[in-house]
Amino acid sequence: MIERISRLGRRGCDLLEAVGRAGLFLAQSMFGRPTMGGISLWIAQVYMVGVLSLAIILVSGLFIGMVLALQGYTILVDFGAADALGQMVSLALLRELAPVVAALLFAGRAGSALTAEIGLMKATEQLTSMEMIGVDPLRRIVAPRLWAGFVSLPLLTIGFSVVGIYGGYLVGVEWLGVFEGSYWGNMQASVGFFNDIGNGIVKSLMFALVVTWIAVFQGYDLIPTSEGISRATTRTVVYSSLAVLGLDFVLTAVMFGGLS
């Protein structure tokens, strides 16, 4: 019994220590003095993390918008409110689906790649050798990746929303015959720039921070063997998905739930 309690205590200490380490890690890499060639390193990472994720994000966005319109139409038409389709599609995408789904896809596409890449660098002693040369790998390797993720995901989320709303337009207006003017008009009447678009972007900024942080930290902190890398990659996807969904609830409650 006592053994169990002490094991629980040890777990708690380990967890706290890991959180502390991750926090220090974030602070050191994000706010440390940038190294030489900072911008070009960052551009290369935006390419890896953002541009290469664009295809999966846009295709998913298109389909989600189309499905939303299809599902929404069958319900709304029963209430004679098919004109509100644009409003429904756009609000659902901007407030909720685009930030969350884009973050989940981003964790799977870019987060796992980040973990594996940094883990491989650790396993092949690149991080150690960089430190021996006198360059802090936190600044040179980790910081550009963190900042790239932080910028890329909001842009991807915007792309997701735009394509999704267009997908809703294709299905709703072109196929199901909702009047085009009411699709856009109802949307414009109900979507607030700061309330809906702005809050969606704030959400995706938070998700970007959390997902890239988890991905990069898992890579940096893993056990440098092939098994360690594969485990850390899995952990990245699991932890960041859970973190995104949990954080989404909190943010939604604060932004739209009247809790503020």
């Binding site: 030489m36 060639g37 092949t124 690149q126 050798s129 960089m130 021996m132 040369i133 006198g134 360059v135």
Partner: peptide, 25 residues
């Protein structure tokens, strides 16, 4: 200077840039 067991060359830089790295830093 330290020579690592695996070489530990930076995989995203060419041979030239690897050797130039300490100089640039």
């Amino acid at each position: 200077g330290m020579l690592f067991q695996s070489g530990a060359l930076f995989s995203d830089l060419s041979v030239f840039e690897n050797v130039a790295f300490p100089l640039r830093v």
